[in-house]
């Protein structure tokens, strides 16, 4: 919403606009995927609270870093025998 276009009571008269609000800048830790280890079980996709795990044709292909806040749930939930996701410090 720009200042020139303030709607009545701040109501947003269209759907899905949260997608336009980039929150990736909050991230301190970045998830790194090891494609060789990943079994595409998609548990990370199920558990991600920001819908930031990208899946194409049933395969886990990476992260939407514009919305990933680096919480690390994906890395934690990735099965112990697989551990395809690691969290690394964001570069300053």
């Amino acid at each position: 919403m720009t200042k020139k276009n303030i709607t009545f009571a701040g109501i947003i008269f269209e759907g899905g606009t949260a997608d336009e609000y980039k929150t990736g800048g909050w991230r301190k830790l970045r998830p790194i995927l090891d494609k060789d280890k990943c079994t595409n079980c998609l548990i990370c996709w199920v558990m991600c609270p920001d819908s930031a795990v990208i899946v194409e044709d049933g395969k886990m292909v990476g992260f939407n870093l514009e919305h990933c806040k680096g919480c690390g749930i994906c890395a934690m939930e990735c099965p112990d025998k697989v551990k395809a996701i690691t969290m690394e410090e964001e570069e300053k």
Binding site: M1, G10, I12
Partner: peptide, 22 residues
């Protein structure tokens, strides 16, 4: 058919304008 968001987060660029409307 016409989805809307009511009570969205507003930041310093918009909050004051909405209070001014009110």
């Amino acid at each position: 058919e016409n989805p809307i968001t009511v009570g969205a987060m507003t930041l310093p660029d918009a909050y004051m304008d909405i209070k001014h409307q009110q």
